[in-house]
Amino acid sequence: MIATHYVYWLLFALMMIGLYVVISHGNMLKKLIGLSLFQVGVFLFFISLGKVDGGSAPIVSEDVETYSHPLPQVLILTAIVVGVATLAVGLALAVRIFESYGTVEEDQVLLRDADDREQDGGAS
């Protein structure tokens, strides 16, 4: 079990560190960094599904017999791009939030938001 599954376990640990950072940290930039860590764990998990012992990169040539599976790699290429796109949008939002609230700490933003709400009376 250990010899055949160690990769999965280590990758799960990696994902969980990322997820923990996303949920428990209040700093928005840190949240986004955590999101990247979480996603990288998932990407590695996909890639590890396609790996074959003794295989090589799925670029066909005459002197190679075993190849790793190309499909997970294609999926993860797409997912990496989606990840960086999300990161860029998240960072742009963080910049705007800093400009209008003066902070990127979620707790402080919420505090200032509560002040807004007292003024205009909308509760959520």
């Binding site: 994902m15 997820l19 996303v22 928005m28 949240k31 986004l32 999101l35 979480f38 996603q39 998932v42 998990f45 996909f46 599904l49 997912a79 999300t86 949008v89 998240g90 939002l93 963080a94 705007r96 939030i97 209008s100 609230y101 933003v109 919420l110 938001d113 807004d116």
Partner: peptide, 26 residues
């Protein structure tokens, strides 16, 4: 300005949700 905060929270929660979906697909 609360729209920015709403959007950011949606982004974080939504991306975590999408990543869960991705794990499930995996």
């Amino acid at each position: 300005r609360r729209a920015l905060l709403a959007s950011f929270r949606y982004l974080v929660i939504g991306t975590v949700g999408a990543t869960f979906l991705l794990i499930g697909i995996g």
